[in-house]
Design a protein around this nucleic acid. Structure first.
Lengths: 193, 193
DNA sequence: GCGAGAGGTCAACACCTGTTGACTTCGGCC
DNA sequence: GGCCGAAGTCAACAGGTGTTGACCTCTCGC
């Protein structure tokens, strides 16, 4: 199998738990996900999950950190950030069948639980809005926040609520529309409309 | 007190439960909200909540329907839909201290719970995307969906994650930025940028 | 007056949750 | 060989959940 790590390493229990947690938290909410599910996915007893990570909240924190360090799609935005971001979100959310849903998945699914939101708020600010802001001009953080809003809303409507308009058909016009909106929000040169 | 109904009517128990449910579900998620909280808010025993509405899921459905029929901000979008929508979302989410958070509140807080999402998906399509689409031109539903995405993401970042950029300061430039982006998404005449 | 039924309460059930303490098993070090 | 700690398991606790059946209480129609 092509694991994300060394193919030879048998993936220690703690590591399997972390991977299982990332998978679950990317698809379900914090509240909705039970430690027993994660333990079962990892082929481990519940008690060991708790023993290895301290608490559910700490496990969630570790999972979020893992995803964020795995995917840093803000590193290479190139000359056309809007198009890059749009392309990334669109392509990423297409891989719903598999396992990895990217940072957006684990983010949008646990927005509502207060304990999870405490972690997520910090992550969104530190690992998304702030670094995106540094790549832009004046009013940077506000524009970055609006861009984040658009991307997050898009992800939610497509992956959580599964609006047919956003799930079916060739993503061409959809991606272009998203990119145009992002361009405006980010203050790039306006699209020709 | 200025209740939403007749000021003289003492608000029957069932009605108080419904109002309490709207309040709770607008601030917390479906999973996170217990029937005992709602019962306490309404000054009623838990058993009666269940007896009056059948189940938690049916109560949630009733609450969502109530909010949607109360607020139909899609009726009068006028000649500048983008600005109207932006103004509505911005002004509505400012009234967080009180009680009513509008449709967005009850929508974004329970996205993650499957039972709640079943109700919400139908509502978003029927009561938001579809009617908004009828007021637009070609590619209508797709544009409406993108607009919904922007508004929803904005609401989440502001009210759930409480990004400082979106909560503080005079809403002027913020609202203008949101309106510009909406204008592009909706296919109105482009802003002068 | 009196039965009936709506409006409402009480206590409990069955289930699921995160969490914990005691126990076992296994590999490496002296 | 024997110890020791890490890795892992087992069973159970304490608390919270939605839900249910039996019960009370008041008002209205006859």
């Amino acid at each position: 199998m092509t694991k994300t790590r060394d193919s030879s390493a048998p993936a220690s229990g703690r590591e399997r738990i972390l991977e299982a947690a990332v998978g679950r938290f990317s698809r379900q909410s914090y509240d909705q996900t039970g430690l027993r599910e994660i333990a079962a996915d990892a082929g481990v007893d519940v008690a060991y999950v708790h023993r290895a990570f301290g608490s559910k909240e700490q496990l969630f924190h570790a999972a979020v950190k893992r995803v964020m360090q795995t995917e840093k799609f803000l590193d290479d935005l190139g000359t056309d950030p809007a198009r890059m971001l749009a392309a990334h979100v669109v392509s990423k959310s297409k891989a719903d069948a598999g396992c990895e849903a990217g940072p957006m998945g684990i983010l949008i699914h646990s927005l509502t639980s207060p304990k999870a939101a405490a972690v997520l708020r910090a992550v969104v600010i530190e690992d998304f809005v702030a670094p995106l802001g540094t790549q832009l001009d004046a009013n940077a953080t506000q524009r970055a926040a609006l861009a984040a809003a658009l991307l997050m809303g898009f992800s939610i409507l497509r992956d959580v609520l599964e609006l047919p308009v956003l799930t079916e058909g060739p993503g061409g016009s959809l991606e272009r529309g998203l990119a145009d909106a992002l361009a405006v929000v980010l203050g790039q040169t306006k699209p020709e409309i």
